Deep mutational scan, measured.
Amino acid sequence: KNALMQLNEIKPGLQYTLLSQTGPVHAPLFVMSVEVNGQVFEGSGPTKKKAKLHAAEKALR
């Protein structure tokens, strides 16, 4: 199970927000955030999926 699945089991129905998309078309950088218990966690990556995963990993720490 990855961090997204684990976080969804603990806190179902979380909303992930796209904060920014920067970089060239062939190498974009997405920044996504998720709010858990009033705290906002951000993650970035080359795809929205990876950015969401990194945000979930930070939220689980």
Rank of each mutant, 00 (worst) to 15 (best):
K1L: 12
K1G: 12
K1E: 11
K1A: 09
N2I: 01
N2V: 04
N2W: 03
A3T: 15
A3I: 13
A3Q: 09
M5L: 13
M5C: 14
M5S: 15
M5F: 15
M5Y: 15
M5K: 15
Q6F: 08
Q6S: 13
Q6C: 12
L7S: 03
N8K: 13
N8L: 08
N8V: 05
E9S: 12
I10H: 11
I10Y: 10
I10N: 05
K11I: 15
K11Q: 15
K11N: 11
P12H: 05
P12K: 09
P12V: 04
G13A: 08
G13C: 07
G13E: 09
L14I: 15
L14C: 11
Q15S: 13
Y16K: 02
Y16D: 01
T17A: 06
T17V: 09
L19W: 04
S20G: 11
S20F: 06
S20I: 05
Q21C: 10
Q21Y: 07
Q21L: 08
T22G: 09
T22M: 08
G23C: 05
V25A: 15
H26L: 05
H26P: 06
H26D: 15
H26A: 07
A27D: 12
P28Q: 13
P28K: 12
L29H: 13
L29W: 14
F30M: 05
F30S: 04
V31K: 14
V31M: 13
M32D: 01
M32R: 02
M32V: 11
M32N: 03
V34H: 01
V34L: 07
E35Q: 06
V36I: 12
V36S: 03
V36K: 00
N37M: 09
N37P: 00
G38A: 03
Q39V: 11
Q39P: 02
Q39R: 09
Q39A: 09
Q39I: 15
V40S: 11
F41N: 02
F41H: 07
E42Y: 09
G43S: 02
S44Y: 13
S44C: 11
G45C: 01
G45K: 01
G45D: 01
G45W: 00
P46K: 13
P46L: 08
T47I: 00
T47S: 12
T47V: 01
T47G: 03
K48A: 09
K49L: 14
K49N: 14
A51C: 01
A51Q: 03
K52D: 01
K52S: 07
H54M: 13
H54F: 09
H54T: 08
A55M: 01
A55N: 00
E57I: 08
E57G: 07
K58A: 12
K58Y: 06
K58W: 04
A59Y: 04
L60G: 01
L60A: 02
R61P: 04
R61G: 11
R61Y: 12
